[in-house]
Structures are given as structure tokens and as C-alpha cells.
Nucleic acid binder design. Structure first.
Lengths: 338, 338
DNA sequence: AGCTTTTGATAAAACGTTTTACGGGAGGTC
DNA sequence: GACCTCCCGTAAAACGTTTTATCAAAAGCT
């Protein structure tokens, strides 16, 4: 009962006593088909459970209903939410999404970007592993591409990102305003444009507070080691983690060392995660507007797929800065700024 | 430089001075092509950046290199990890993944399951929204389907799940063993087979501990209200949340009410999330082996796609039970059981 | 009634591949 | 040298659609 031999448009046509062309016209709601035939075809389609083969239909019509999404890592809830939002939008416009995750690996990203071409997607949305995207993009990429979150080295693509510098500056100013005298900023590596922008933003707004950067790398073990050194050997009064994974390991390390926040040191994070609102005290963060980024990315891609050929465009979205207990001086006031 | 007119196998053939058939033979590594021609074709392919169109190739050869994945909600990190693992496995076998998320909505799930047929995927892996999957599956689904995590009402599909009952029983026994006299089990709804199995397992191993079930539903507001009532009106000595979202809201509510764990009440959760290891004390959980589930699901689907027609099969994987501070009596011992 | 226009349906071509069936030439055997 | 194989390459058919061109019948004019 589950398996049947394949039913094609011809089967439907025969059964309804019409030509395949008519069936096609009915299914694509072309005008000038007699109401009676529409009815008859519809019935047969329902009866047989027929649904047109997208491959054949794409092949002939040249109309693509597939868009590709490349993210560094789907198990990161931030990217999961991003894809999830994107999917809803895409479906509304009649697109399906081919999702690939690059497992945070530049080499895999290259391979996936190449392989995805064979599906001839109408467009691509990419959150690259790092800034060197264009080195990894096959030279022939005939579809529009929108890059999200991380600045590509090559200003050849549309970009949707957040105002990294301003947001980091807000945190920095807040810490300085609370009276902390020294702050260490920890991030994966300055070669990622994101991280660089955040660091520069933070540095620019430190005021009288001594501020320094430590690059912890991308691998768990290395991150843990560098943070351990930082927290034991020259502990600052405040620690500002520039990405989620660094923040997570920093918090773990602090807990392991028996350091409490904000008593022993203030703690803030770029990238907000669920747990940051759950721990006590809750953690001061910069919340990135993921849904808005997805929406903006889809809108932009939509326009490009529709033929829009305006010059490449960069869009910066605002983050919200959530000041919470982890950075407040005892008796300090609580505020929320953007 | 980015855009070029489409290059097809004919373009390659002409440029290499051979027939399209030969190009095809080279690309698909068919035997009996002269080494010299192979070389020549390869060069042209590289030069033009040609890559075969999957749609056309599927259409003619009937060989599908696409598999579908349907999950309730990609922004849930558990499902994100699941898809991510699946993707790696699929790529190793030369498959691409068409990912759709149903936004936890039964109606959307139905619609997506129907729409995905038009891509003629070679197989489907589905984590259904609830147990009534077969009511939502179009009658004609000619490809193999593997259901994961939630028992379908209809034993017509292969199933990969975890030993819900035993794992919940282990938690229940642990709580009872710690000397708690009453326990409330909170879960979305017993109409989800998962939840039912967990509740029954917990109930069966309560020993002398009074145990009762409260169904909190699926919507945030409702969950919050029911949990608030539970915690204020007839607070038990222990609370066992049966799914991640219930656990999250329960923990928030406890924090809001100023209740501490395990002092005011013990707290445990099925489904482990990152934050449960970060809060202090850390939370006792049942950790589901997501990666193993994904691996098992892909293996099973792989076999089915390879033509295996054995009777439908159900596979139960073991969870690990992580006993942590949130359920330990003061001075109690810490243990880890499976 | 004769003419043109409109309407509604279809046959056939086309999309980019893979596969099947065929054919030409080289090599082997008697 | 006639015959048979075997090897290598190609022409053409086929996959399931959509589109284009065509055509018959009906409808609108004078």
C-alpha cells in the first residue's frame, strides 16, 4: 500500500482523458482551461496523490525554487534559529532550503560551496567560517549571494551584519562607568573581522579603564588554557568575552576557580545564550537580532533573485545591550542602553 | 566576471572535441575511456568550472542524491545537533540534505511532508511533532522513512528512540533513594508517547515516594501558569521536568519565587541543555545520545535506501543519567548510573 | 452565409543529463 | 585475406516537465 509505481504527469493525463500539457496548465493555474477540465484534472490529481517532479520542472522552465544556506555549525543555537527563521520566510515565497553546515571547517566550507552549485540554487545565503570567503568561492557562482554576520574580505557580496563596534563600545563604556579599572577582552582571533570590530569598539570607549586583548583561538582546549592563565596570573577587574564559546568556557573556568561575579570580577559577553539569563547573577550581554538578520538577508536575496542589480549593499543592524547583575557594582544602578 | 552564460555538458564536449556521452563517462568514472581523453576532458572541466546539473542527472539516471529531514524546530539545539550530525554522515555517503522544520506545528508538518515529495528524495528522516504522524503523511510516500525520537501511532515505519521508561525510572529511584517523600512530574502532555513513557517509568520506580503527574501543555504561558500553581499551592519535595522547555520554565519560575535547589526542593530534568551544567548547583539530568540517534537513523535509512526490505524495526538507545547537585541531599553521596 | 477573431486544447520541441544501441577500426585466428 | 572479437567512441533516445506553435471549433462581424 505504501509503494506504487511512479505516477507521472502522463498517468494523470491519460486518466483524465486530456493531454499532459493541459494537466500542466491546470497545475500552474494558467488561464484558458475550461472549468470542467480543471475539475476533472484536479480530481485525478487528488485521487492519485500526484505531485509534480521539481527536478523535471526546474529543468524545463528554468525556474528555481531552491535556495541554499551555508552556516558554520548548525548545533550552535544561534545559527539554528537563523536557519529556522529563514525557512519560514523562504516557504512563504515558495522556496525550499538546502541547508549545509560546514562544521566550522574552512576546508569543508569550500567543498560544500562547490557541491551546492550542482543544485543550481536560485540564490545563496552564507554565514562564512571566517573573512576569507572569496578565496573559497568557486570562480563561477552565477547566483546572487548574501553574506551574513561576518565581513568578507571581498566587497563583492551583499552583507548583513550588526554594529559590532558600537555595541562593544557600549559595554566598555558601561564597565568603565561602573568604576572598573582594568578589563580583559577575550575573543577567538582578530583575523575574524567580527572580533576585530568588537575589540576596536571596546578599546575606543574604555575611557580611563585599562583594556587589553587576548586571542584565545578556536579550539576548546586552547581557549580553556588561555583563559585559565588570564584568570590566575593577571586577573583583571572585568572580563568581556567576544563570542559565545569563549563566554561559555570563561564562565566554566571562573566557576571552577571558585571566582564569583561580579564580586571577584565583572563579566560580560557578546552573543547572548539562554543560560546567561538563568545563572545568578544574570550576565550582561549584547543580544544580536538573529531573526531580524535572517529577515533582512532573505529580503535582500529575494530582491536579487528578482533581478535587482543595484550596487552591492551593506546593512548594519542594531544589537540590544542587556545590562544585568554580572557587571553591576554593589549598589550600582541598572540601566539598559542600545 | 561573476556571471557567465550557463555552461552545460555540451559546452564541455565541444571544447574538448568529444561527444557529450564521453564527457559523461569521464565524470562518472566509467571504464573504457582512453586515458588521453580523460585528461583532455578533465582539463576543460577544470577550466570552465563545470559541474553537472543534479536535476537533469537525477531525471535521467533515476539516482537520487537527496534525502529529506523533517524536525519540529531547528532553533532547539537538540534538533540542531541532530541535523548537524546527520549532515556529516549523509555527505560521506554522497547525499545532500533537504532540511525542513515544522515550527512545532502539526499543520505545517503535514504541509511540509507533502511538499517534500516533489523533490523525490531517496529517503526521509522524521522527528514528528507528535505521535499522530501517519495521519499527516500523504498516502503515497514511495521512499523509505525512518522516524526518530517520538513513537508513531502506526508501526509502519522504522523507529529510533531512547529507553524513556528506564531512564525516568532511574531518576525516580534516585530521588526516592535520597529520601524525598513527594515528587511532582511535569511534562507537556501525555498524548505524546515520549512523555507518557517517561511518566510511566518514573511512576513505576517511585518506591515509597508519593508521585503525581501534571500536564503543563505546550504553550509558554500555560506552562508558566501551571508550574507557578504547582510550586506555590502544593509544593512537592522534588520536581522532575520531562522535557527541556518545561525544565527551563520551571527553573525560571523557581528563581523568580526565590526557591533554591535542592534546599527548597530537588530538581531534575529529562533532556540535557548546556545551562544545566553551568548553574549552581548543577542540575541532575537524563542525557539523550543525540549523535548516536542520528547515526543509527542514518544507518537504518541507508540500508533501506539500499533496498533492504526487512520487517520494520524499532531501536532503543540508552541514555546516560547524570546525577548532580540539584537532587543531592545535604551530605548525600554523588553517583552516576546508566 | 462568408469572413475574421477568439477560445481552448494538443502535439511536439526543448531543458541537461545518462544510457542504450550501434558502428568503425584494430588486433587475433585460421 | 576473410572472419570474428574486442575496444573505444558516438548518435540518438529517454527521463518528466513546460512552452511554443499549431489547429479545430466556436463566436463575432458585416
Amino acid at each position: 500500500m505504501k509503494r506504487r509505481q511512479p505516477v507521472s504527469i502522463k498517468t494523470v493525463a491519460e486518466r483524465a482523458g486530456v493531454s499532459p500539457a493541459t494537466v500542466s496548465n491546470v497545475l500552474n493555474a494558467k488561464p484558458s482551461v475550461a472549468p470542467e477540465l480543471i475539475e476533472r484534472v484536479r480530481n485525478v490529481v487528488a485521487e492519485l496523490g500526484y505531485i509534480a517532479d521539481n527536478h523535471a520542472s526546474r529543468l524545463r522552465s528554468g525556474k528555481h525554487s531552491l535556495a541554499g544556506v551555508v552556516v558554520p555549525d548548525l548545533s550552535n543555537p544561534m545559527f539554528g534559529t537563523f536557519v529556522s527563521t529563514l525557512e519560514t520566510l523562504a516557504r512563504q515565497d515558495g522556496f525550499d532550503l538546502l541547508v549545509v553546515s560546514a562544521a566550522n571547517d574552512v576546508e569543508q566550507e569550500r567543498e560544500r560551496l562547490n557541491a551546492i552549485r550542482s543544485w543550481r540554487p536560485a540564490g545563496l545565503i552564507v554565514i562564512p567560517c571566517d573573512g576569507a570567503l572569496s578565496h573559497r568561492t568557486p570562480s563561477i557562482m552565477p547566483m546572487p549571494i548574501v553574506v551574513v554576520d561576518r565581513l568578507p574580505d571581498d566587497p563583492d557580496y551583499d552583507l548583513i551584519a550588526v554594529n559590532n563596534a558600537q555595541s562593544a563600545a557600549a559595554i566598555s563604556a558601561h564597565l568603565s562607568g561602573q568604576g572598573y579599572r582594568s578589563c580583559t577582552v577575550a575573543g577567538s582571533t582578530l583575523s575574524i573581522s567580527n572580533v576585530r570590530e568588537r575589540w576596536e569598539g571596546a578599546a575606543s570607549a574604555a575611557g580611563g579603564m585599562a583594556i587589553s586583548m587576548v586571542e584565545v583561538g578556536l579550539e576548546t582546549d586552547g581557549i580553556r588554557r588561555r583563559l585559565y592563565e588570564t584568570l590566575t596570573q593577571r586577573r583583571p577587574e572585568a572580563l568581556f568575552a567576544l563570542d559565545h564559546i569563549t563566554a561559555l568556557i570563561a564562565y566554566q573556568t571562573m566557576t571552577d576557580l571558585g571566582l564569583s561575579t561580579p564580586g571577584d570580577l565583572a563579566f560580560a559577553s557578546f552573543d547572548e545564550a539562554e543560560w546567561m539569563r538563568l545563572v545568578r547573577p544574570a550576565i550582561t550581554t549584547v543580544r544580536q537580532p538573529i531573526e531580524e538578520m535572517a529577515t533582512a538577508a532573505w529580503q535582500q536575496l529575494s530582491q536579487r533573485m528578482g533581478g535587482n542589480a543595484d550596487p552591492v549593499r551593506t546593512m548594519r543592524l542594531a544589537c540590544s545591550v542587556e545590562i544585568r547583575g554580572s557587571t553591576l557594582r554593589e549598589g550600582g544602578r541598572s540601566d539598559t542602553a542600545a
